[in-house]
């Protein structure tokens, strides 16, 4: 669907005099792609948060068919250039000290708050319920990759407690135990 809506914009490595200019151009294209692909989410939630790995798959699949894919290295370098190019709404952030994400504003705190709110309303919610509730207004605003990382963070930090049953992991808000 996205492939057809994009114009025949050729950002072809071979047309660029040097790598740096190519990366700049990719940075602009990736930025525009994310802003338009997640426009709805940005308007409704005010924030965007997506793992770099998912950006790699989505961007290449939607925008690069026919023009040659970008490499993981190129994508990373492109996203690292956002600020320098004045593309200020998105930055590269590390989640849980290990997973790189493209993020706008304080998206992490936002979705963390949202998850804690759902869990306190539905004690014992599992990943399936959380995903459904988080994305109830649109199909895939928050990717499972992000939801799992944020959950992991909540559990590691002690905001959420787990109840591990054979049916899956159920989450509860930690009200009883101090965490610092």
């Amino acid at each position: 669907k996205t492939a057809t809506k994009s114009p025949f914009l050729v950002v072809d490595r071979e047309k660029f005099l040097n790598k740096s200019l190519f990366i700049d151009e990719i940075a602009r294209e990736v930025y525009d792609f994310i802003m338009s692909e997640f426009k709805e989410q940005k308007e409704r939630e005010g924030v965007i948060l997506i793992t770099l790995v998912d950006v790699y798959a989505l961007y290449n699949k939607s925008m690069r068919i026919g023009t040659g894919l970008v490499s993981p290295q190129e994508l990373r370098e492109a996203c690292e250039k956002f600020e320098k190019l004045g593309l200020r709404d998105l930055t590269l952030k590390k989640l849980n000290n290990r997973v790189l994400c493209v993020s706008s504003g304080d998206s992490f705190d936002f979705i963390k708050g949202k998850i804690l709110k759902i869990v306190s309303a539905v004690p014992g919610a599992d990943l399936l319920q959380l995903t459904q509730k988080l994305n109830s207004s649109s199909s895939n605003a928050w990717t499972v990759g992000i939801i799992m990382e944020v959950l992991q963070n909540c559990v590691n930090e002690g905001n959420l407690l787990i109840d591990e049953q054979i049916s899956g992991i159920h989450y509860y808000v930690n009200c009883d135990w101090k965490i610092n």
Binding site: T51, L52, V53, D54, Y56, S71, P72, Q73, L75, R76, K94, R98, V99, L100, G145, E149
Partner: peptide
């Protein structure tokens, strides 16, 4: 190996 540069938690 190439994917590792994305720090995707893979």
């Amino acid at each position: 190996d190439m994917l590792q540069t994305l720090n995707g938690g893979f």
